[in-house]
Computed example of a mutant assay.
Amino acid sequence: MGIPSDFEFRVRGDEVVIQHHGRTATTLRGARATEFLAQVEHGDPQLLMARVTGNYRRGNERAARQHPRNAR
């Protein structure tokens, strides 16, 4: 699996806006925003943002869907 990249986040008041390739992917508010900021200090920010936005599954899922074994 590739390394997530091109994510960035901005803190606006009490919310965190996460962008991917310059487009807003998600906005975290309240407890989720606070938890996110705490986790960013201790881990890989790119991986964390990919997981929060749901944009981390970019492996072979698309190819596997078309495999004859998975055909219905």
Results as ranks from 00 to 15, higher is better:
16 V>E: 01
49 M>G: 01
19 Q>H: 08
9 F>A: 02
62 R>W: 11
44 D>K: 05
42 H>R: 15
6 D>N: 15
48 L>V: 03
49 M>Y: 02
26 T>Q: 07
53 T>M: 07
55 N>Y: 15
8 E>Q: 08
30 G>W: 01
20 H>G: 02
31 A>N: 07
2 G>H: 13
29 R>N: 11
57 R>S: 00
31 A>L: 13
28 L>G: 06
42 H>Y: 07
18 I>Q: 04
44 D>P: 10
37 L>C: 07
13 G>R: 08
48 L>I: 09
53 T>V: 11
20 H>R: 11
61 E>H: 09
22 G>Q: 05
1 M>L: 11
24 T>W: 06
64 A>H: 09
64 A>I: 11
27 T>A: 08
22 G>W: 01
41 E>Y: 00
61 E>V: 05
18 I>T: 03
11 V>N: 02
62 R>L: 13
52 V>T: 14
1 M>T: 04
37 L>G: 08
46 Q>H: 15
62 R>D: 13
40 V>S: 06
40 V>N: 04
50 A>L: 05
71 A>Y: 06
29 R>T: 15
47 L>A: 14
6 D>W: 01
8 E>P: 00
23 R>N: 09
50 A>T: 06
2 G>D: 14
58 R>F: 09
5 S>F: 06
7 F>Q: 08
13 G>E: 02
12 R>Y: 10
34 T>H: 08
44 D>S: 15
69 R>T: 04
17 V>Q: 07
10 R>W: 08
24 T>H: 03
43 G>S: 14
46 Q>D: 12
16 V>I: 07
15 E>G: 04
34 T>A: 15
60 N>F: 13
70 N>S: 08
65 R>K: 14
17 V>Y: 05
48 L>F: 03
25 A>H: 09
41 E>N: 01
53 T>P: 05
7 F>C: 10
46 Q>L: 12
42 H>W: 09
18 I>A: 05
50 A>S: 11
58 R>D: 10
20 H>V: 01
65 R>Q: 14
15 E>M: 12
46 Q>V: 12
9 F>C: 03
33 A>N: 04
14 D>Q: 14
63 A>Y: 06
19 Q>T: 11
37 L>W: 01
1 M>R: 09
45 P>D: 03
51 R>D: 07
18 I>P: 02
5 S>Q: 15
37 L>P: 10
10 R>S: 13
48 L>P: 02
1 M>A: 13
56 Y>W: 12
33 A>P: 02
12 R>C: 13
26 T>E: 05
10 R>L: 13
20 H>N: 09
13 G>I: 05
47 L>Q: 12
72 R>W: 02
24 T>A: 10
69 R>N: 00
10 R>G: 01
41 E>K: 12
25 A>Q: 08
9 F>W: 10
12 R>M: 11
42 H>V: 15
38 A>K: 14
60 N>A: 15
29 R>D: 12
16 V>F: 01
47 L>P: 00
70 N>I: 00
